[in-house]
Structures are given as structure tokens and as C-alpha cells.
Design a protein around this nucleic acid. Structure first.
Lengths: 128, 128
DNA sequence: TTGGTCCTACGACATCTGTCGTAAGCTAGC
DNA sequence: GCTAGCTTACGACAGATGTCGTAGGACCAA
């Protein structure tokens, strides 16, 4: 399972680790906004499942509490997410972009950045 | 449930209806590629569930077979999908775009189209 | 040393998805 | 009219996800 599928809640947990580095269960739980924060054992269960999926691991212990760290990088997980998402559109970008723009999720700056990145990429390919 | 969440398989079924118009279960099933095509009753179950979710409905009958038609539009479903997806990234477009480009999913044409669309949108807002 | 507090390890359970099988009904052709 | 074949309506089941509760062990402070 090199690129395990992560659910929304699992991603939120990984996000805490990616953002703050190794954390204890309690700290991960407290990284959730008070409003709608899942119970301690809910977070615990998800962390254990992420451990089974090899998305994170026990790094060390402080007192009797385990400290967990991410094994999968944010980039890796995001790549997986994007792929998954695109497959839902049959890989056709057009409707995706259109939707993003209509909804106002895509700004001129985003597009400009995209253009620059594309140019860089093209150059790297031409002159390796 | 104005915008029910649709799973991957459910979306594939809706896709058949969006593409071909009202269909019978058998036709929906046959819209799947031979390779890995789900059993007739699997499609049937999903169609029934989509009916409960009000994503489609029985339009009429031909012989003893029901003909189903989409109630939710492709656009509506895609908007839901994009929103869902963006929420996984905390609404930050930057990593999404970067990922799309790195993976080669975004072409210069896509970006050009995006730019044009953005301009149109901006104009529409300025001169309503 | 003895509580009180915190953490761990499990187990439970409801939903949602994806997969089908089966029984019974309807149809169409012979 | 009768039977072969396709449909429908249901029921079942396994795996993933999200939610927790509980029992018992570990640790610290008095």
C-alpha cells in the first residue's frame, strides 16, 4: 500500500502532523477547532488506523504517551488526492477548471502562477 | 438533501444518464466497459439508491422495464464534487494547481482557457 | 503509598459503498 | 396457453469510515 487512500478525517489528522511535526494523540485532537471536535478516542482510533496504513508511525514516547509522526508526505498525499479527483472527471480538466473559476475559487494570480510554472516546466524539458 | 453526495460508482451511473439520456438498468450496465463491468444487480442496487437520494427518477416504462432519468444536472453534481475536493485542501488553490501542473494534467490550452474565462467573468461583473 | 488523572488498547456499532444472489413477476414467441 | 428469458424487488454481506465507551495500566503529586 504505497499510496493508501486517506479519508477526510484521516487527512485532517495528517494535516496536524504535517503542520506541527510529531504530536501526541491529545495534541492532534486539540488541533481540531473546538466546534465539532471529535472525541479523544475517535482521534485515537483514526490514528491507529493510519498507523496500520503506514501513513504515520510512533516516533517516541513522552511519559506514557506515544508521539506520532507522518510517514507519508503532504505532497504524496495531495498527489493521490488530485489523481483520485481527476479520475472522477474522466481526466478531463476543462469542466474542472470551469467549475473552479465560476465558483470564484481561482484568481488571476492563481492562473498567472500556473502559467509561470508551466513555462518553467516546458523549459526544463527542452533544456535538460 | 438538495445536493446529495455521490460516490464514484454512483457518478458513473449518472454519467451514463447525462450522456445518453433516460436509460433502462440494462443499458446503464452496458455503458460500463466490458472489462470490470459490475453485475446487473449491482447496477440495479445503485440505481435504486440514487432514486432514494433523488438523484434520478423513473421516467416511464417500456415493456416491464423501468426507464430512469437524471434529476440532478451534471453541473450541479460537479459543483458539489469540486467543493468537496477543495475543502480537503482547506480551500487553498495553490497546492492544487501546482499538483495539477506537475502531473501534467494541466496544459497551456487549459490555462489559456482559464484566463479567458476569468476575463469574461471580470467583465461581466464590471459591466452588468 | 495512594489517589486522581491521563493514556492505551480494544471492542462495539451505525452508515455508506460496492457486490451479488434469489425468488417471483411479466412478456413475447411458439 | 405455456415456457424461456429478462425484470424487479429484496435481502445479505464485507470493508471502510466515523463515533465512542470502557477497562486497566502508568505517572505524578501530596
Amino acid at each position: 500500500m504505497r499510496l493508501p487512500k486517506l479519508s477526510k478525517l484521516e487527512l485532517q489528522i495528517m494535516e496536524a502532523l504535517w503542520t506541527s511535526g510529531p504530536l501526541a494523540i491529545r495534541e492532534i485532537q486539540e488541533a481540531f477547532p473546538q466546534k465539532g471536535r471529535p472525541a479523544y478516542t475517535t482521534v485515537q482510533t483514526m490514528v491507529y488506523r493510519l498507523e496500520v496504513k503506514k501513513a504515520l508511525r510512533r516516533a517516541r514516547k513522552i511519559g506514557n504517551a506515544h508521539i506520532f509522526e507522518a510517514v507519508i508526505s503532504r505532497d504524496t498525499a495531495q498527489r493521490r488526492l488530485v489523481d483520485e479527483f481527476l479520475s472522477l472527471f474522466g481526466g478531463r480538466m476543462q469542466p474542472v477548471m470551469a467549475q473552479l473559476i465560476e465558483a470564484g475559487n481561482l484568481t488571476q494570480k492563481d492562473v498567472a502562477d500556473a502559467e509561470r510554472l508551466l513555462r518553467d516546466l516546458a523549459r526544463r524539458k527542452k533544456e535538460p
